[in-house]
Simulated scan of single mutants.
Amino acid sequence: MPQSQNANANSLPQTGDTDQRGLSTIGAMLLGLSGILALFGLGERKRRDDK
């Protein structure tokens, strides 16, 4: 086996990890926002039930 083919065989393929970084950041932000909105919704429901 030539030297260049052996070097390629020993390295892992590049999977495009940097392309998904922005998408995962947006997903984390949406998850946090939905959690905050859910907390506000539960707080309003408790206040209405107490009256």
Rank of each mutant, 00 (worst) to 15 (best):
M1D: 10
M1I: 12
P2Y: 15
Q3C: 08
Q3E: 11
S4E: 14
N6S: 11
N6D: 09
N6L: 14
A7N: 05
A7L: 14
A7F: 12
A7K: 10
N8F: 14
N8V: 06
A9W: 14
A9Y: 15
N10L: 09
S11F: 02
S11M: 07
S11E: 05
S11V: 06
L12K: 01
L12Y: 07
P13E: 03
Q14D: 09
Q14I: 01
G16E: 01
D17A: 15
D17W: 14
D17F: 13
D19I: 10
R21F: 10
R21Y: 12
G22T: 14
G22D: 11
G22W: 14
G22S: 09
L23M: 13
S24A: 08
I26R: 07
G27Y: 03
G27W: 06
M29G: 04
M29Q: 06
L30P: 01
L33W: 08
S34T: 14
I36S: 04
L37E: 06
L37W: 10
L37T: 11
F40I: 13
F40R: 03
G41Q: 01
G41P: 01
L42Q: 02
G43Q: 00
E44I: 08
E44L: 05
E44F: 12
R48M: 02
R48C: 03
D50G: 05
K51C: 05
K51L: 11
